[in-house]
Structures are given as structure tokens and as C-alpha cells.
Amino acid sequence: MRSGSRPVPDRCPTLRVDTGAEDGAVAAGAPVTGAAEEDDKHRKDRALIRARRWERLAQWMFIVPAAAYLLLFFGYPIAKNLVMSFQQYTTTTFYTGSAPFAGLQNYSKVLSSDLFPKALLTTVLFTAGSVFGQFVLGLAFALFFQRRFPLGRVLRGLLLLPWLLPLVVSGTTWKWMLDPDTGVVNNALRGLHLSSSGIPWLTGTSQALASVILVNIWVGIPFNATILYGGLQDIPAHLHEAAKLDGAGPVASFRHVTWPLLRPVVGVVLVLGVVYTVKVLDVILVVTGGGPANATETIATQSYELSFQQFEFGRGAAMSNVLVVISLAFALVYLRANRRARNVWEAVA
């Protein structure tokens, strides 16, 4: 059913993207099997029912370790973080262990600091810029690699590398490439006489923000391209052929066939993009360290600095809770507004 160019072997069940026609079918998946089991049960004798009950317990034993782990390493930190955000941590806390209750003081300090509105704006710009750039370029790459041409598979594979490299590695390389005095980017610009003095990639405040967005786009293109590519592959080719017969050019075909059918995947890509980008820390820490003059300081880097540089764990916790709220709010608003996307999201899960 698939062209041989798909990297996914047919043995693997590729997740089908809900195209709207079968709205809800995937979400209803679990109850359907449940009903089937109900039927099953009626046909078996009572002994089997008892066995099944035991089995259910056994079934839970499969889940318990993972659930316990998730509770410990997500549930506990969330709760602990919430508690910490109401406590006053100082260096003395480390010796005496006492962190007195501070009420909303951490929140009021964090939210009223000069840095907060700036960091919030930077977070929004960084996220919007990164997600937009990754998506547009990722889609362009996905559309391009839809074509079949010699070496296409190999090239598509290579394209994944930026996404798989440790962020510290790519960040370090970019930092060095973007060095205003000695970096290869400015050397090339100067060599081509595009700029006489070079661009202050890491030393200008707005340029530094642009730089970290650029690096993050570079990191994110492969992921976007891969998912969108998968989505494009799932669009039946005959629809394009039909559009062509109707006299639609490539642009019209994209607008009226590809885009509407790709919409659900687009939704997933964008939501995931925002949720993952909002909390990005390593790229910024490595490339600019939040500077210059706090120009690339986001909520996430602020939280890191408060906790691990200034040992203000209470305020750091308050700051990171702001981040959680932003992230959750975005995801929930989006999911409510877009039921169709939610189905895809669930299918993805």
C-alpha cells in the first residue's frame, strides 16, 4: 500500500492520521475492544470470569512500576516544586534545613521583577519565531522530499542528524560559528562584501535573540519535516491526480488538497512545537548564556539561574511554575478549541 520510499517498514504500524472523515474513530478505539471483551466474557463460563478478575489484577502489576516511576519523577517534583515556591530558601537553608513558609512572597518578587516582563516577551518571541521557522522550513523540506529522485532516501536520512546531535554539541558549534570577530559566518559575510564589520550575532541584544532562534530552528527542522512528511505520505495520491485532471496547478493542489488533509498533523506539530520550545534551556545556555544584557533570558533560563546560580530555590520554583502554567494553558486552550486535533493527539498517544 505504500511506496517503497517510506522509511517505515510495513511491519511497523504507522499511526494513521485522522483525516476528519473518521472523526472520533480512533478515540473510540479503547471502548470498542472493551465491548468485544464483554461479548467474549459472556461466552465463557464463570470460572473464567474469576480468572479474568485475577488477570486484571495481574494486568495492573504491569502498569504499577511505570506508574510509580512517573509519580515519583513527575508527580513528586510538581508537588515539591509547588511547596518550594511558597518557602524561603537561602544558603543557610542548606545547613540548617529550615525553609520558612513565605506565602506568596516568591511569586510577587518574581512577577514584579524588572526582568520578568522582558523574559516573558523573550519567551514568546523565541517560541513563536522558532515554531514558525521550524514549521515553514520543515514543511518545505517535507514537500521537497516527497519527490522521488536518485539519492533521495540517503539525503532525507542525513537531514535527521541535526535533530539527533546532543544540543550542547550543536550549540557549541554554532556559538563558535557565530563569533562576531572570528566566526565563519561573519568571515563569509565580510569575504562576500555583504557586511564590512560583520553582524554582532552574539553581542547585539536583538541579534543574539535572532541567533538563538536561528539555532533552534535549525535543530527543529528535521523533526517537523519528518512528521509532516509522514502526514503527506498518508494523503492518497489519487486525490492529487484528480485535482490535476481538474486542471489544478501545484499551488492550487496544495491549497485545496494537501493543506486541508494535512491540517490535523499540522496541529499536532505546532502544539508539540510550542510545548517543547517553551521549556528550551540548553540551546540558550550554551549559545548565549542568557546574555548579552539578559537579551536572551527566558522564563526557563531565569528559573535555572534563580535556583542553581543564586540558590534561591523558592523563587526558582515559583518561576518554573509560571512556565508550567503557560505550557498547560496553551495546550488546554488549543485542545479545547480544536477537537479534531485532540483526536489526532490521542491517536498519537
Binding site: 479503547a30 512517573l70 513527575f74 515539591k80 510545548v275 528559573s303 530555590f313 520554583a317 508550567v324
Partner: peptide, 29 residues
Amino acid sequence: PVRGTNLVLFGVLITQMVPGIVVANALYS
């Protein structure tokens, strides 16, 4: 299809929204 499956799945989804720094903050202490 045990009851609670959806809850577990929802929990798994929520984890994707928790910034690493939150986990790090609490785990440190």
C-alpha cells in the same frame, strides 16, 4: 481496557508539558 487506562495515558501526556527544570529543581533537594 482496565479502568484507569485513560488516566494513566493522560498522565503520560501531561509529563510532556513539565519542563525539565521543574524536575531538576525538586530532584536536587
